[in-house]
Amino acid sequence: MTAIHTPSEAEVDGAAARLYADDRESLGYVASHTRVMALNPDAVAAFEQLIRSVVPSLGMRRYELVTLAAAGALGSTACRAHHGLKALGFIDADELERIARDYRTAGLPPEEVAMMAFAERLSGDFAAMTQADAAKLQRLGFSDREIVDIAFAAAARNFYSRSLHALGVEPDIPPALPMSLRDALLAGMATRET
């Protein structure tokens, strides 16, 4: 567990209590990352507003694909698992399992493969990125707004995952995540753990 003291459900109020309640409603428990991040609910709200601002141009499916690619490159167990569960609302379980194992061979359209590769590169080797990375997305039909939002979505995952890692948050795996999908999500990522 983290060195940060996280309050119990009985100890939180206001915006932090709403974050706990949202987890309890959607997951059946309060996730370890929520307990830590809820210490600054204003930052969580700002992060969520950023995500709400990028989703309209990408759609939820593509947002989750970008998130899974970024989290995988970062080796973020918590983010891969939680977004794997969220992605089930937008991606068929069999397809998602193939994507989790290796998005390059999962039968995705070329533009989605390129989008995920962009997010993966931004999350791993961002200093080596050039205009050619964005130009490839343009050639595949992405608008400038979509490319900016892909970058924002991947960078936002870096912010969240890296914050969890820096704070020593122990990842938890949602019990509702099917075992075969969990295995695929965790096998198809870098070895670092957040």
Results as ranks from 00 to 15, higher is better:
Thr6Pro: 01
Ala3Glu: 15
Thr2Cys: 10
Asp23His: 07
Ala155Asn: 10
Asn158Pro: 00
Gly89Cys: 04
Tyr160Thr: 13
Val36Thr: 03
Ala70Asp: 03
Ala187Trp: 03
Phe142Ala: 06
Leu74Tyr: 05
Tyr29Asn: 12
Thr34Val: 09
Val54His: 02
Ala114Glu: 11
Pro7Met: 12
Ser163Thr: 11
Ala17Met: 06
Ser161Ala: 15
Met37Asp: 14
Thr34Ile: 04
Ala114Ser: 12
Ile4Leu: 15
Arg18Trp: 07
Ala70Ile: 02
Ser161Met: 05
Val148Pro: 03
Ala127Tyr: 05
Phe142Ile: 01
Glu97Ala: 13
Gly84Asn: 10
Ala15Tyr: 02
Ser163Tyr: 06
Ala38Ser: 14
Ala176Thr: 03
Leu177Lys: 08
Ile99Ser: 06
Leu185Cys: 08
Asp92Phe: 01
Ser143Asp: 12
Ala132Pro: 06
His5Ile: 07
Val30Thr: 10
Asp144Lys: 08
Ile99Glu: 00
Gly28Trp: 03
Ser123Cys: 06
Leu140Gln: 09
His82Arg: 10
Leu181Asn: 06
Leu164Asn: 08
His83Leu: 08
Arg61Lys: 13
Ala151Met: 06
Ile173Asn: 00
Ser76Lys: 04
Glu64Ile: 00
Ala15Pro: 03
Leu185Glu: 04
Arg182Ile: 00
Met37Asn: 15
Ile91His: 00
Pro56Ala: 14
Gly28Glu: 05
Ala132Ile: 00
Leu137Gly: 09
Tyr160Val: 10
Arg52Lys: 14
Gly188Arg: 04
Ala100Leu: 06
Ala128Arg: 08
Arg18Asn: 13
Met60His: 13
Ala3Trp: 04
Asp13Ser: 15
Leu137Asp: 01
Ala21Lys: 14
Arg139His: 12
Met129Gln: 12
Ala128Asn: 11
Ala155Pro: 01
Thr191Val: 07
Glu112Gly: 05
Ser143Trp: 04
Ala17Pro: 01
Val54Phe: 06
Arg35Tyr: 05
Ser76Gly: 09
Val12Leu: 08
Gly168Pro: 02
Phe47Glu: 13
Glu111Thr: 03
Gly84Gln: 09
Arg139Met: 11
Arg104Cys: 10
Ala117Tyr: 01
Phe90Cys: 08
Ala128Asp: 15
Arg121His: 13
Leu68Ile: 02
Ala31Gln: 04
Ala73Leu: 02
Glu48Tyr: 07
Thr2Ala: 14
Val169His: 05
Glu146Asp: 07
Arg35Thr: 03
Ala106Pro: 02
Val12Lys: 02
Leu68Asp: 03
Ala16Leu: 02
